[in-house]
Design a protein around this nucleic acid. Structure first.
Lengths: 217, 217
DNA sequence: GGCGAACCGTAACGTACGGTACGGCTTGTC
DNA sequence: GACAAGCCGTACCGTACGTTACGGTTCGCC
C-alpha cells in the first residue's frame, strides 16, 4: 500500500508499471498543474481509474507518490573533500550553484513546487515537506560537508555551517525561484546559469574565504 | 466594472462597502487559502452572492480584486538620498531588509503568494504578475534609487544597479520565502529579523562597499 | 406615501470531478 | 481448457461549488 507512506523512504518497491504510471502523472502535472484530473491521468497512463485508486488510495496519494517518485530520481552522488584546494573548492561550489539553478528553473521543479505550495495551506498532505526535504534540505546536506572540508583546509572561515549555507543559497537563487513560481518569464540560458554560478561563488568566497593574504590587497 | 481591469492602476474607485467586502475576502483567503468558496465569502462579508458577481464578475475577478486591494494598501513612501553617509545608508538598507522580511513572513503575504503561485500555471488570470509587481519589483523600484545615491556619494561600488539589487535581495531573503510558502514552520521573531537585516546589510556592504580604505585592513 | 434601485438571504440549476462498480480481456497456474 | 487474479475501459453515483434567479427589505428621491 502506497498511500500510508509519509516517511523518508523513497522508491518504495514500485513495479515498472507503477513507475510508468507515475511518469505519466508527472508529465501531466507539468502540463496541467494542480487541476489535473484522475480521469486525465488514467487516460494518459492507459490505465483504469480503478487501478489508480487501488494503488494510490486517492488523489492526494497519487500526487504524493508522484512527487516522491520524482524526488527519488534526483539522488546524486555525495562529493568528498579529499585534497581540497582553492581551485577545486571553487569548482565544486560553482558546480553546486549551477546544478541548483538548473533544477529550480526546470519545468518539473516549477510544476512540483507550484503544486506543493498550493497544498501547503491545508494540511491534507505533506507535499511541501517532501519537496523541501528533497530540494533545499538535500542541497544543504550535500553542501555542508564540502563547506566543513573547506574550513578544515583553511580555505573558508565561518562560525556556523548552516548560516554559511543559507548565505550561499541566497547568493545563488536570489529572486529566481519566486519569480519563476509566480509565472515570470525568465529564461535562464546555459551561459547565464554558468555566469551566475561563477558570480555567486566569487561573492561567497569574498564573504567567507579565509583571510590568508591570498586575495587581500 | 472591476473585472475588466488588468492594468497597473490600484484602488480603482472602490466604495467603502466594496473595500469592506474585499477585506473580508482577504481574511478568508488567509484562513482558507485558494479553496475558499463564493458562498463563504458572501457569508463572511454579509453580502449576497449576487452582489459578489455583479461587482467582480466571477471567482477569478474577486480573487484578482482582492489581491490588488491588498497591494494598494502597502504603498509606502519613497526614501530620498539627501545627505547620505555610510551610517544613514546602512540604516536605510537595514530598514529595507527588515521591512521585506516582515512582509514575506506575514500571513497575508504567504497566503497571497500561495494563491498566486497556484494560479500561475494556468493563464486564466495574472495574479502572479500582480503579486510580483507589488512585491519584488516594487521593492526594487524603491531600493535602486538609494543604491544609486550610495554610488553617487562614493559609498557603493557596482556596475549595474539591478544586479546589485538582486544580490541584496538574495542576501536578505535567502531560503525564507520558499520555505514559508512550502509550509515550513519558521518563526521569525522581531529579534531574528533585526539580526538578519544587520547581517545581510553587512554582507552587502562587504561585497559592494567602495574600497576607500574605510573598512579594509 | 409611492417608487425604483441596490442589496441581502436563500433556493435552485448545471456541471465537473472524485470515487465506485462492473463487464470483458489477458495472463499465469493447475 | 478451467479458473482466478489483475487490469483496462466505461458507465455510473454523489457531491461540492460556481453561477443564476427570485422574493423581501432598506433607502434615497419625488
Amino acid at each position: 500500500m502506497l498511500h500510508s507512506v509519509s516517511e523518508i523512504d523513497t522508491s518504495e518497491a514500485l513495479t515498472e508499471r507503477q513507475k510508468a504510471v507515475l511518469d505519466a502523472a508527472l508529465r501531466l502535472l507539468v502540463e496541467e498543474g494542480d487541476q489535473l484530473t484522475m480521469t486525465a491521468v488514467a487516460r494518459r497512463a492507459s490505465c483504469s481509474k480503478e487501478t489508480l485508486y487501488k494503488w494510490f488510495g486517492d488523489r492526494d496519494g497519487l500526487l504524493t507518490a508522484t512527487v516522491q517518485w520524482q524526488a527519488s530520481k534526483v539522488r546524486v552522488a555525495q562529493v568528498d573533500g579529499k585534497g581540497l584546494d582553492l581551485a577545486s573548492l571553487t569548482a565544486s561550489l560553482e558546480r553546486f550553484a549551477s546544478d541548483w539553478l538548473k533544477v529550480i528553473s526546470s519545468d518539473t521543479s516549477i510544476a512540483l513546487n507550484r503544486v506543493a505550495v498550493g497544498h501547503a495551506g491545508s494540511g491534507k498532505d505533506d507535499l511541501g515537506a517532501v519537496v523541501l526535504e528533497n530540494g533545499r534540505f538535500a542541497l544543504a546536506k550535500r553542501l555542508k560537508p564540502m563547506l566543513e572540508a573547506g574550513r578544515q583546509a583553511g580555505l573558508l572561515d565561518f562560525a556556523d555551517a548552516e548560516t554559511a549555507f543559507r548565505t550561499f543559497f541566497g547568493l545563488v537563487a536570489r529572486d529566481v525561484q519566486i519569480r519563476l513560481l509566480l509565472g515570470d518569464r525568465l529564461e535562464l540560458t546555459e551561459a547565464a546559469i554558468g555566469g551566475d554560478a561563477v558570480r555567486a561563488t566569487q561573492q561567497f568566497l569574498a564573504l567567507f574565504g579565509a583571510k590568508t593574504g591570498l586575495q587581500g590587497p
